[in-house]
Amino acid sequence: MERHRDDIGARTGMWLFLFTEILLFGGLFMLYSMFRMQHGAEFHKAAENLNRIAGTTNTLVLITSSLAMALSIAAIRRGRKAASVALQATTVLLGCVFLLIKYFEWSTEIGRGIYPNSPALLKLDHGEILFYGLYFVMTGLHGLHVIIGISVISFMLVSTAKGNITSTDHVRLENSGLYWHFVDTIWVYLFPLFYLVT
């Protein structure tokens, strides 16, 4: 049985999927706004302890990786396989850099004794407990999406190198790109909400 191919259908499916992902994060953004309305001042205070330089670097890293992803699709459209593979590799690498920086940030907080349900955290005000709770849950869930994104793009990278993704058949790569842009966009919202509220 020959495979039924419908690029528009595949794209439709991907957009619907991303839509559900947005709703998933939407629930958390809703919690964030409700808690922040109740505890504005404490949110500001808690946010001052986050490392703004690390956050900014990570924002730049992710935006660059998104750009590389977009370019890799442009490259495969023109049939430039090697360039596309290199650009995808760049995306994956930058994704790993993002995770690494995030890892050091989390370690610093945990090193200070700040993690969910920790004795040091429970001594703080309610607003700060909630702020850090949201911080760990939201960046954690986002981090999970980064890991999934890295795995998917690595898979695409191999497919491209093997010649399964070509200038005429690349909807899978495009969909992976969409996913990566989504991951990037979520971060672009998380960054100001956590690092810049001071």
Binding site: L130, G133, V137
Partner: peptide, 25 residues
């Protein structure tokens, strides 16, 4: 299904996180 289920998803996820880590929402 696709509009409502993600909200259930995040809610259930929060229950799990709450039980495992005690975040406190």
């Amino acid at each position: 299904q696709i509009l409502a289920t993600p909200i259930l998803g995040i809610t259930l996820l929060l229950v799990i996180i709450e039980r495992l880590f005690g975040v406190g929402f």
